[in-house]
Design a protein around this nucleic acid. Structure first.
Lengths: 192, 192
DNA sequence: ATGCTATGTAAACCACCGTTTACTTAGAGG
DNA sequence: CCTCTAAGTAAACGGTGGTTTACATAGCAT
């Protein structure tokens, strides 16, 4: 964590580095879980993308479930939402959610694609509450913060679902001004 | 379809009835796919609930995927939404989506729990557009109907996701008046 | 240099699942 | 009554996937 990257050190890098291997597996898992989903991605695919042996998932994370837990934990973060200005909150949120750059390592598709598996869903449920809904509810304010955070999550999830997973035209790259305006107003009305 | 049910006919009913068996499998599949999801329910569970042999899924539906297609097709229906009064549309939709009676055989959880499987998602995508979004867009009106229908689906899916699959307090049985009001206003604003 | 330990690998294990095959049997038609 | 077809069943097949086990080796410490 204190080591900077450089081509010189890359050359001198030891072939065996537990931390680096663990990080590589975690990053590959985040990519795969966000795009193909928890159930549909096997540990063999993840470790192949990381360039290591499948058995290392058990060694470094204990199980595929715990790997999913670590992968989602690192991505679930309210800072991007909480840092937004309240007066133009709706627009900022829609901009954030429709930013085409942030398609990979996105916790929202990751969560929804994991909903089918019972144990992954239980993990998602716990982390979503602890790491996202509770901080967001506190940010909204002590008055009805929980309800507002839940409405936020519902609309954000629905938008992501039909934008990333079921690519619908109306939520695609050429979203109409009216559609965007409705989304902006809906998110903004959670503040006012 | 013209045969009424009676205890007398039940007694005289032949032990082998292809139509009845097919219907029993379909009903069991709708129950299971709506609650546990496409990936997590095996054909053995479905046929066990229907009281028949697993091989009959292949006989009557061709494959598990086609069974899913038949199960979802029968449930996807815009009539419940399209029949609603436009002036109180928001309230009627929220009442419909938060009706605790309609938990089983619900196409929305069924769709979301199937999103993880690639082929099931492709089927869902097609049926959603053909049987729901296009009729709903037409009902909304030729002006921006597609965008409105997509927003409707997004909010309805988000609400169902955090009400049925991840039971969150704010969307549960004791939903606050403010939360409900926000949902009602959001749905209603798609009409006005 | 030489053990020793952490790191990594290959291969097997074991359970599950969708589907197919071979076989049995109920029940209508002659 | 007999036969033939549709309906149903039992069991196996082939593939997959997470995990474990046994083994190899890189790299640090002595």
């Amino acid at each position: 964590m204190s080591m900077p990257e450089s081509t010189l050190e890359t050359a001198l890098r030891p072939q065996r580095d537990a931390q680096r291997t663990r990080t590589a597996i975690l990053a590959a898992a985040q990519d795969a879980f966000s795009t193909r989903g928890y159930t549909d991605t096997g540990v063999r695919e993840i470790t192949a993308a990381a360039g290591v042996n499948p058995a290392l998932v058990s060694r470094y994370f204990g199980s595929k479930e715990r790997l999913y837990e670590a992968a989602l934990s690192e991505l679930l973060d309210t800072k991007q939402v909480i840092g937004l200005p309240r007066e133009s909150f709706g627009m900022a949120v829609v901009d954030l959610l429709t930013d085409s750059q942030r398609s990979r390592r996105n916790p929202l598709p990751m969560m929804m694609l994991a909903s089918a598996d019972p144990t992954a869903r239980a993990i998602t449920d716990r982390l979503l509450k602890e790491l996202f809904l509770e901080p967001l509810a506190h940010w909204y304010g002590q008055e009805r913060g929980e309800g507002k955070a839940t409405c936020f999550a519902a609309l954000a999830s629905g938008l992501t679902l039909y934008r990333e997973l079921y690519p619908l035209n109306a939520f695609g790259v050429q979203m109409s001004a009216e559609t965007r305006a409705w989304l902006v107003a809906a998110f903004q009305s959670l503040i006012d």
